[in-house]
């Protein structure tokens, strides 16, 4: 039996969408490096970066690494594998604190210290009232933030200690 026009149009639309989807998937995979918003310290360590290139790095602010000196601040970020030292001058977002995920934009120095021009705080997907957060911490059921990029935390250090 010959295909009806409706049937033919149905197959055509499905094929076109399939082709378009496959094409888009290939393009997105090819441009993977340009679509990611930031690199992790591990990724930074594995590539040769020239100081001219403006990039973004992201990770959790390492416990005890924040040193403030007026407007100047230095800290380290970690993805639980490698850490990266960052220096920055300017205002930090409210959510910035040790254990918090942040994204810094700037340039890699030759000395291995990253000079940031802008620091953004990442917010995780957990929403709860303060009492619930306190209760969770008390009962030991608190889930630590995870460095995006898969590395779930196995250490016990980066717990957000103070609520803003």
């Amino acid at each position: 039996m010959a295909m009806t026009r409706k049937r033919r149009r149905l197959y055509f639309v499905m094929l076109a969408l399939l082709g378009l989807g496959a094409g888009t998937a290939l393009v997105l995979t090819a441009f993977q490096d340009n679509i990611v918003f930031f690199f992790s310290p591990t990724e930074i360590a594995s590539q040769q970066l020239t100081p001219e290139r403006r990039i973004r790095v992201g990770g959790l602010v390492e416990q005890g690494s924040v040193v403030k000196n007026g407007e100047n601040v230095t800290f380290a970020i970690t993805d639980m594998n490698k850490s990266l030292k960052i220096q920055y001058q300017g205002l930090l977002p409210d959510l910035f604190r040790e254990g918090q995920g942040i994204v810094a934009e700037g340039r890699m120095g030759t000395d291995g210290v990253f000079t940031a021009h802008e620091v953004l705080a990442k917010h995780d997907e957990n929403y709860m009232p303060r009492e619930v957060a306190d209760a969770l911490k008390k009962s030991g059921q608190w889930h630590e933030p995870t460095a995006k990029n898969g590395a779930p935390t196995t250490t016990t250090e980066p717990v957000p200690t103070t609520a803003q």
């Binding site: 802008e118 953004l120 705080a121």
Partner: peptide, 12 residues
Amino acid sequence: QPMWGTFWAWDA
């Protein structure tokens, strides 16, 4: 603006 520190970011 108050949470991240910016109105806009060109993320995915």
